[in-house]
Design a protein around this nucleic acid. Structure first.
Lengths: 196, 196
DNA sequence: GGTTTACTTGAACGATCGCTCAAGCAATAA
DNA sequence: TTATTGCTTGAGCGATCGTTCAAGTAAACC
């Protein structure tokens, strides 16, 4: 076992995050991991197999960050900081502003079924993470008690998606911060009923 | 001139929208357009050249829809209908829920510079379209006069992006409609100031 | 020491990629 | 009729794709 497993996954994550599933060729992967094709295939069976592990690692990492937010003394302000960190990093980490999962959804039917499943399940996992945050905010009296947590969680996830696309193209950090403020405002205001 | 230009672009749009830039191979394109490679290259120079025209056609079409919304007797309710139509189409047109431009942004650095420029300019065009809608709403007393139109336009575009990703994965139309209602509510409420 | 086991290596396979170009075709001009 | 022009054709180019596999290496167990 010449190569460290976690180290491999992390390097692969960076590559897939930057280039996407299709555009990251096996030869790019071989170079990024400093491994020969045989070694890669012996461990991960296929490019898709490696990608699946990357997605799961990414989701796990994201989920633990969300958990930290939920467990903060002030979940709402921790949420604001979380958004800020994710969306206004330095320029050389600009690729990180895009959510790996959302980027993958754009090429969902080019990715095989195994990784596809991992992506959709990861989306679900993150939604749960957002839900925990909303509930923590309610418990901490930072959000009204009548806040519909399930709906607010999905909404929050959507906001995150929209903001990531925005931040990716936006050069002015203050514009991003303003959008984050709007999210926090809207999170506190009223919610629609089901009626249609 | 055996083939009709608009007809070509429309068929190509469908293909790129469904599959994305990379995944749509030249042989897929040849089949979809019922054209041989030579004919395609004689007209469009390259796959990227064709894609550029597709993007511009898409943006132009979207912009005219947004203009219709802005010119409606009630821009705000027209906006709601616009969102609903874009996000809750029948299942065989599910691919249309994803915004072609956003999908393209996910593979931006795999696309050449010419089409890349077209994509970014199109994003700008659509932002202008959203701005016109917000201003029309204000003029029609459907939104408060102090609404910051520039900010609200960017915000509205973000909402559209987030909702499209949501609608793509969501099977329940009522959940999407609920999110749309939330957008309309938030559009009317307060906006953050610049302070930071 | 010998055998097994787990991992690594890299040349090379068949398939597919975007794209080229000599040749063919039909309509118009001379 | 012949020449020219604009569009179309499709075999096939070189490059790259994901993947395979026989051979090599080194540590572990008997």
């Amino acid at each position: 076992m010449k190569y460290d497993h976690d180290d491999i996954i992390e390097k692969a994550t960076t590559l897939f995050w930057q280039r996407g599933f299709q555009a990251a060729g096996m030869r790019d992967i071989q170079q990024a991991l400093d491994m020969r094709p045989g070694s890669i295939y012996a461990r991960f069976q296929s490019k898709e197999g490696l990608f699946k592990l990357v997605v799961e690692h990414y989701a796990q990492n994201s989920a633990s960050r969300l958990k930290q937010v939920a467990e903060a003394s002030s979940p709402l302000s921790a949420l604001r900081v979380f958004f800020k960190n994710a969306l206004t990093g330095p320029d050389e980490q600009r690729y990180m502003r895009q959510c790996l999962l959302i980027k993958s959804i754009a090429e969902l039917d080019v990715i095989g079924d195994i990784a596809k499943k991992a992506i959709l399940e990861s989306m679900q996992t993150l939604k749960e993470g957002f839900k925990d945050i909303v509930e923590a905010c309610v418990k901490n009296d930072e959000l009204p008690v009548h806040t519909p947590t399930e709906l607010a969680a999905e909404w929050l996830q959507n906001q995150f998606v929209g903001l990531r696309a925005f931040a990716l193209l936006q050069d002015e950090p203050s514009a991003v911060l303003q959008m984050i403020d709007k999210v926090i405002i809207d999170l506190k205001t009223q919610w629609p009923s089901l009626s249609h």
